[in-house]
């Protein structure tokens, strides 16, 4: 059975999605909606990571329930930079690129969850199916959010 392997990939992708969201938040602190929602939505992925770690043992995978978000030193440096670069329209373009990364990562997580959901149905694993059905819509909302922000920001960032 390959479910364990897919869970491992999914765990990795959720961790990276959370990191991308936190990077976005900290890099664009002057854009308050990104700052607050970046943190809010990263928390969703962190919850998914915990749930994945809890269920993975049944599939012979040891997954870390609380991996570190990122390196603190880099973090504070990024924060310092972010607050100072908020006065340039260039930062909008960087933001659209960062949003694109979040969108792509969320999209691949979404596909992972779809695969898990399908597999869970095939082996009639209700616990796993329930987890997939709970997490997948949240991942979709993360992707939709990033996509909607890309649409909004592009009308300004790309034309100035």
């Amino acid at each position: 059975m390959k479910i364990g392997m897919v869970l491992r990939d999914l765990h990795h992708d959720e961790v990276e999605l959370a990191r991308a969201l936190l990077r976005l938040a900290d890099k664009h602190r002057a854009d308050h909606e990104f700052f607050h929602l970046g943190h809010d939505l990263a928390a969703w992925s962190r919850r998914h990571v915990r749930d994945l770690a809890a269920i993975a043992a049944r599939f012979d995978e040891q997954l870390d329930p609380e991996p570190a978000d990122s390196v603190p030193v880099v973090d504070s440096a990024r924060r310092w930079l972010s607050e100072r670069s908020g006065r340039s329209a260039e930062v909008e373009l960087v933001m659209v690129r960062d949003l694109r990364e979040v969108y792509l990562r969320a999209s691949s997580v979404l596909t992972d969850w779809e695969m898990i959901g399908q597999a869970a149905q095939a082996i009639v694993d209700e616990e796993l199916l329930e987890l997939a059905e709970k997490c997948q819509p949240e991942t979709k909302r993360q992707a939709t959010w990033a996509n909607s922000k890309i649409k909004e920001s592009s009308t300004q960032a790309l034309v100035v």
């Binding site: 002057a30 308050h32 006065r87 340039s88 930062v91």
Partner: peptide, 15 residues
């Protein structure tokens, strides 16, 4: 349509 807080943000970033 752009909301007020975002308008102020665009003023802040100079766009």
């Amino acid at each position: 349509p752009t909301h007020a807080m975002q308008i102020m943000r665009y003023v802040e970033d100079g766009s």
